[in-house]
Design a protein around this nucleic acid. Structure first.
Length: 254
DNA sequence: TGGAATGTTGGAAC
DNA sequence: CGTTCCAACATTCC
């Protein structure tokens, strides 16, 4: 789950704000579930890919990783939730996610300026951070959660295609204007991701993610695990040429 | 239908 | 002891 989806989660949890936990259960091992009984759920907040549940007596940090999910009322059949909270008006379920309790001090170290979905997100900080990671591949830097908190693999691939940048290009090999575009377009795409996700039309707006051919030139896309993170990159070898590579022949032309 | 995939972590290995 | 690497986890989708 990527940053924009977390913002949606926060919104969906608004009706439960300031409600008392009537009962709590689940199979989460790392938290003291009993402690939540009788506590008041104050509100949810997000930071990057973290969902923070603020209670009267503690703060839980939820990370959905690849397969995590949540449900309001509509429990999944035959599945034990990591955490289930019963309120007077709703039931809240979290599945296959990582849940941890964090301290007030941990909470205060969250820096909104690097959360791509925050109103306080600071593009200048991201830009100067790029200059500290010049020897790294752009695919890794975009997914670096201490630079672009909330950016995930979908956003990475879609942004790089929009900018026609090869995922394995090093930051130092990008032009100055490309550095600026990278920061700007990542924010833009995140906002669009959010809108599409709300309307349930995210996937149909993917240009390159899990596609076979380039939407612009029909060239067969490359699908490769790239960078230190070894996450799947989808890219067009024609539209997003590598630094040293010679341009491949455009499909349909010789 | 099996394999791929919106991700991070903890600990082994060096 | 610091850094790097990789297995583990878990579930939906096509």
């Amino acid at each position: 789950m990527e940053g924009p989806s977390l913002v949606i989660a926060v919104h969906e949890l608004r009706p439960i704000r300031n409600k008392k936990v009537q009962s709590a259960d689940g199979n989460s091992k790392l938290i003291d579930i009993a402690k939540l009984n009788g506590a008041t759920f104050v509100e949810a907040q997000s930071w990057g890919k973290h969902l923070l549940l603020i209670f009267s007596n503690t703060i839980l940090r939820i990370h959905f990783l690849m397969f995590g999910s949540y449900r309001i009322d509509d429990a999944k059949a035959e599945r034990v939730p990591r955490l289930h909270l019963k309120f007077s008006n709703h039931d809240l379920y979290f599945y296959s996610c990582s849940i941890r309790e964090i301290s007030k001090q941990d909470y205060e170290t969250y820096d909104k300026q690097i959360d791509i979905m925050s109103d306080e997100w600071n593009p200048q900080r991201a830009l100067s951070a790029l200059k500290k990671h010049t020897a790294e591949m752009v695919c890794d830097v975009l997914m670096n959660q201490s630079i672009f908190a909330g950016v995930g693999n979908i956003i990475k691939n879609e942004v790089l295609f929009r900018l026609k940048i090869h995922p394995e290009k090093k930051i130092m090999h990008l032009k100055n204007y490309e550095h600026i575009k990278l920061v700007e377009e990542t924010k833009n795409y995140c906002e669009e991701f959010f809108e599409w996700k709300v309307l349930n039309i995210l996937k149909r707006n993917w240009k390159i993610m899990r596609k076979k051919n380039c939407p612009d030139c029909e060239t067969q896309l490359i699908r490769k695990k790239t960078g230190q993170l070894q996450r799947w990159s989808y890219f067009c070898p024609y539209c997003q040429p590598a630094v040293t590579q010679t341009y491949p022949t455009r499909m349909g032309r010789e």
